[in-house]
Design a protein around this nucleic acid. Structure first.
Lengths: 267, 267
DNA sequence: ACAATTTGTCTCTTACAAAAGACACCTGTA
DNA sequence: TACAGGTGTCTTTTGTAAGAGACAAATTGT
């Protein structure tokens, strides 16, 4: 029997870290795992496969899914055998946006910046210790470099990561960065000390530029957004081709930092 | 002891229907109630008050809230003692939008229509048997009639409600409409038969206009959005002053129906 | 047509999460 | 100062939800 039937066109999602082999799991935790799983797969999935994916008993999964569908947090997708996120989650998400000035205004600034420059622009935040793209606006290049909203990437891979950690103690930083995080997609390995030095530099200069980190073709410009003075709440960033000229880069950096500063004012 | 301490500036949210007095409640259900409660209050709330609001033991509430905050579904708000929806819910909500053509395109159409006409425009859907404003764009009037996204209103109060139920059996309609739903905000009482007749009319004409139903000052124009031919998946609607001229109304109706039809095409 | 799966529903058992309640700790105020 | 009210954390008990598994029905492939 082949495992992971039906989703084998993906790197086969790791079957959820088995904590204690046959141990019972709290229903709520199962639900949280289901959400994360759906978030990573980004598509509707059959209940059987879902059970496999989150490593939960089939019977339990059926029960939970039914509850969630009844509540509207999940919905049965088109053909009636797969589930995905539901309207309720969208509504709650909009509630969050409404209650969150920074996000609401940040989305606007990002969209404007992207229209103004034609480049891909993103709003990034820390999400439970990980770098997260919270909003992204594609830009107008023929081959745009897009990464999905909600994508989580190791902090050391990004310019924003260096800014988001500015002001933290060394110990805190070590806690948030695993060994694996220091290995870039192309196999190169960053030194933790270099990363920490980068953070200090970013903090003092008030911006950060990285080249060819996540991939060989892009450069990433990032500027901090402060909630209270000194506390970096988010970053705005621009993703541009790596061969963008020095002058052009500086010009973009000015626009970027202006908008990031504007966002900081009344947060 | 006064009940509902701390949130007494609101019509005092009903302390959650007590099903069986002292009975134990499943954790997941408690969580669902918490979400609904936050959705109705639309503001961050202290954990103690939250426990009261959902009628749950304090200890349980603390445990659940901690789980949810750790998971990022809730966040501790500013002063550090109140909770509200978290970033994760926003991300999941965006996943839903991405996976849902109709919603994504519907939001666009609504925004465009609102800009084009200057009137408040909304996208509405059935959400677990209730009329729900899924997206709303304010329009440009000095005193705009706005209702919050995610608001749930009795079906008989709205033009959209009449369209959303088109095609359902009489029995199904009766199930979805309670006695209370037939009583308008001003105290007038609709006859169920009249409502069902309205639905039939709306179905055959392909649009619906109601005047002074939810309040005395507005008129509501609605047009259906079909998923498969015959099945009303959503409605688009315009909210205009009740004294809008016949000609103006007809003109708006044409624009509205055009866009609604466009939405229906490829859903 | 016949396996071989998978799906959705159901039952029963017991491990464990929900609830009760006690605790120390902060307020504000009388 | 003592009091009344709220937080946030712990421990203990027990009702019950998670899980194992069996089932018929639907779906696959050969």
């Amino acid at each position: 029997m082949q495992d992971g039937i039906g989703v084998t066109d993906r790197p086969d999602i790791s079957p959820a870290e088995d904590k204690t082999p046959g141990s019972r799991e709290k229903g709520l935790n199962r639900v949280l795992e289901i959400f994360e799983f759906l978030h990573t797969t980004q598509r509707a999935i059959g209940i059987g496969d879902l059970a496999k994916g989150v490593n939960a008993p089939r019977s339990t999964t059926y029960t939970l899914v039914r509850s969630l569908v009844d509540a509207g947090l999940l919905e049965m997708a088109g053909d009636g055998n797969r589930v995905y996120f539901g309207k309720k989650l969208y509504l709650y998400g909009m509630d969050y946006v409404r209650g969150n000035d920074l996000l609401r205004r940040g989305r606007q600034e990002v969209d404007d910046l992207s229209r103004q420059t034609g480049e891909t622009s993103e709003l990034c935040m820390l999400q439970s210790g990980r770098y997260t793209i919270v909003h992204s606006s594609p830009g107008t290049r023929p081959f745009r470099i897009s990464s999905a909203t909600g994508l989580q990437i190791p902090l050391p891979w990004t310019a924003s990561g260096r800014l988001l950690l500015a002001g933290l103690e060394r110990a805190d930083i070590e806690d948030m960065v695993s060994e694996d995080d220091l290995v870039l997609p192309d196999g190169r390995r960053l030194k933790l000390d270099d990363f920490i030095a980068d953070i200090a530099t970013a903090k003092s200069t008030g911006y950060c530029v990285t080249s060819g980190l996540v991939d060989a073709y892009t450069k990433c410009l990032a500027a901090p957004v402060f909630s209270v003075p000194g506390k970096v709440e988010a970053t705005m960033c621009l993703v541009v081709p790596i061969d963008t000229s020095r002058e052009k880069t500086d010009e973009l950096l000015i626009l970027l930092r202006q908008r990031a500063a504007r966002l900081s004012i009344a947060a």
